[in-house]
């Protein structure tokens, strides 16, 4: 038997909205420690890793580990029926192939019950090494979204260069080119408005912008985003979900032929 309750449905609504264009089907691995999901997009170029710790839920019970394969678009259809302030409860037992979503209004005057059919999804699971990164950049998530969208109007790829003083995003295309340079900024009103650059060694990598733009759909989940880079390694774009976990996006680099 599995049961998990969130005080506000908004979080899960936003999480699914931010990943369902990249991956349409995914398996939620449930265990005593929480719910995890790991899935690659259809081109196997990017990967989403979601981790929701059990202690971040209002209530979390999983008698034994089990998997719930879901179509994220179908899940999103049901979550759209939840009010963002509704209490959200998920329930499933290994026996039947359904997961129940309960949406309870704040005044408890309305209780909605949706049952989603579960699916058998065979997916390659990838072992993601917990590596050290040559460069780690934290910045306001809205700023990162603006950068990738602005450069996306100039070219298809972005060259990211991190030195000890700044991080540079450069794009070029038919109409011309653009470079956006961000310097470290620590003394800000709110900590999440900081731009922090930790560089062990300089990096210079190229990535397809359309994936980074897609990742930035998660901007509403966290006020800041952390970008981790190492030469010739996939970039990690991480949105920390306060008190419960994270959504991490991985994207393989483009390599000069």
């Amino acid at each position: 038997m599995f049961e998990a309750q969130m005080a506000q449905a908004a979080l899960l609504k936003q999480i699914i909205e931010s990943i369902r264009e990249l991956i349409t089907e995914a398996t939620f691995e449930v265990s005593g420690t929480g719910m995890m999901l790991q899935a690659m997009d259809s081109s196997h170029v990017s990967l989403v890793a979601l981790n929701l710790r059990s202690d971040g839920f209002q209530l979390f019970r999983a008698d034994r580990p089990f998997s719930m394969g879901m179509n994220l678009n179908h899940m999103a259809k049901m979550l759209k029926c939840a009010g963002k302030d509704d209490t959200l409860t998920m329930r499933a037992d290994e026996a039947n192939d359904l997961v129940t979503f309960l949406f309870e209004s704040p005044g408890n005057e309305r209780l909605a019950e949706f049952e989603l059919k579960l699916m058998d999804i065979t997916s390659e699971n990838l072992g993601i090494p917990d590596a050290e990164y040559s460069a780690t950049v934290s910045m306001p998530s809205a700023e990162f979204q603006r950068i990738v969208k602005d450069l996306g109007s100039i070219g298809d790829t972005v060259e990211i260069t991190v030195t000890k003083d700044d991080v540079r995003f450069a794009a070029s295309g038919d109409i011309g080119n653009a470079t956006i340079k961000c310097r470290q900024l620590l003394d800000t009103e709110k900590p999440e408005d900081r731009t922090l650059i930790e560089m062990v060694e300089p990096v210079n990598l190229t990535f397809a912008l359309r994936y980074l733009i897609n990742f930035s759909k998660a901007t509403s989940l966290a006020p800041s985003v952390t970008i981790k880079l190492s030469t010739e390694m996939p970039v990690v774009v991480e949105y920390k979900l306060s008190d419960i976990g994270y959504v991490r996006f991985y994207l393989a680099p483009k390599i000069e032929d």
Binding site: M40, H44, S46, L47, T157, A252, D257
Partner: peptide, 14 residues
């Protein structure tokens, strides 16, 4: 021209 890599070479499949 640069070519897009897949994730497999970087992450071990298990």
């Amino acid at each position: 021209e640069s070519s897009q890599q897949a994730l497999f070479p970087y992450f071990a499949q298990f």
